[in-house]
C-alpha cells in the first residue's frame, strides 16, 4: 500500500473526501453530457448550416436524434446545474451566483449593444448563437473572477 495514509482519517476528513469525490463525479458527468450532445450535433448534422453564421434553416438533424440532443441539452444547461446548486455549500453557491449574474448581465447588455452597432453598419445583425456565446463566455469569465477574488 504505497499510497496509504500514515495517520488514520478523522470522520471529517472522510466526509470531505466523499464530498470531493461526489463533486468530481458531478463534473465528469456534466462534461460527458456536454461532449456527447456537442459531438452528436456536429457529427450528424447533414445540412450546410453554421451556428456562428446564424443560418439556422440549413441545419439538418434526424428528428429522433434532435429530440435526444434536446433532452441532453436541457439536462446539461438546466437539470445538472440546478442539481449542482444542491450539492454546493454557501461559498461555492456564491461563485455560482456571481457566474450566472455575469452571464445574465452580458446578455442583457450584449444584445442591445450589438443591435446598435449593427444599425451603425459596424457588425453583422445579432443572432441567437452569438448571444448565447456572449452569455456562456461571460459566465465562464465571471466564474474565474469569482474563484480568484472571493
Amino acid at each position: 500500500m504505497i499510497f496509504a495514509s500514515k495517520t488514520p482519517l478523522g470522520p471529517g476528513e472522510a466526509r470531505s473526501i466523499k464530498r470531493r469525490r461526489r463533486y468530481v463525479i458531478y463534473l465528469a458527468f456534466s462534461s460527458v453530457v456536454g461532449m456527447i450532445a456537442g459531438f452528436a450535433a456536429g457529427y450528424f448534422d447533414h445540412g450546410d448550416g453554421n451556428l456562428l453564421a446564424g443560418d439556422w434553416d440549413l441545419l439538418r438533424l434526424p428528428p429522433a436524434l434532435s429530440v435526444l440532443i434536446a433532452i441532453m441539452l436541457l439536462a446539461g444547461f438546466l437539470a445538472i446545474p440546478l442539481y449542482g446548486f444542491r450539492l454546493a455549500d454557501d461559498y461555492q453557491r456564491e461563485h455560482g451566483l456571481v457566474s450566472y449574474a455575469g452571464g445574465f448581465l452580458a446578455v442583457m447588455a450584449g444584445f442591445p449593444t450589438w443591435t446598435a452597432l449593427h444599425a451603425g453598419g459596424f457588425v453583422p445583425p445579432p443572432h441567437a448563437f452569438g448571444i448565447f456565446a456572449i452569455g456562456f463566455v461571460s459566465m465562464s469569465l465571471s466564474y474565474l473572477y469569482a474563484r480568484w477574488r472571493l
Binding site: 470522520p11 471529517g12 466526509r15 470531505s16 473526501i17 464530498r19 470531493r20 455549500d89
Partner: peptide
Amino acid sequence: ELAGRLDVS
C-alpha cells in the same frame, strides 16, 4: 477535517 464536520468544502 473541519470541512467534513461542518459539511462544507
